[in-house]
Design a protein around this nucleic acid. Sequence first.
DNA 1: CGATCTACCTGATGGC
DNA 2: TGCCATCAGGTAGATC
Length: 278
Amino acid sequence: MPELPEVETIRRELEREAVGKRIKSVEVHGTRTVRRQTKKAFIAKLEGTKITAVSRRGKYLVLKLDSGDVLLIHLRMSGQLRRATPKEPVAKHTHVIITFTQGGQLRFVDPRTFGELFVTAKDELTAEVPELAELGFDPVEDPISWTTFGQQLMSRQMKLKAFLTDQTIIAGLGNIYADEILFAAGLRYDRQTDSLSTQEIRRLYRAVVETLHEAIKYGGSTLDDEQYVDLNGKPGEFQEHHKVYNREKLPCYRCRRATISKAKFGGRSTYFCEVCQV
DNA sequence: CGATCTACCTGATGGC
DNA sequence: TGCCATCAGGTAGATC
């Protein structure tokens, strides 16, 4: 489900909703959501702490705690964070419930159970969270220059879509936004990274940054299955602005001649215009 | 080392 | 109706 714009939308809401609140109690159901530490340890590290800040690295939410630890949340394919009150019925697939001393709750709901929550400490020497060390730059939080971006492209031999979705190079892009970015840049998903001209590099980098900012403005993308919703259960609106994703056989908005093609790349669907992307 | 595949799950959808 | 195959926003880990 969620890529950078959806996670950023949730981050902004959490900043208003969770920062300054103290965790009174934590419930964990099932064995898959909290899996790299015991439930007991996870709960013990959370209860009694106050959330002091919410940041994001790529698709990870980073909740800073006044204990010095951080709560990391990754939604993977179907994870949702939902605001609730204790009286509200607990939805199916609710795996974690955090209750604040003020009375509100934050619930983690995840049908496919790929999502994950864990509490970890920052490295004392680097002040970094070791789990995030492998991530590449975040194009919204931590943009780089287009020339540095170009050096990264030129130093590899891979296809553009693989480059864009490699979290160790760029953190936060997934299947939807990679396709939208490549369309905005007029580049095919299977172009080799080291084949781009200077102008194409600039266009691609600009498309990365602009597409993400635009998507954040619209609260991210929600597909037909409504798997992505924000803290209040509200879907995003950027899907209405998709130019290629999920538009197979529909006319291309740019050239108006071709229809959008669908191909398989890396085991997943890729949407593009044969005419506008070269 | 890099590229490619498979597995991890539930649920929606479509063909027969 | 039901049964089966396919597909879905992601990524770790095995394999080549």
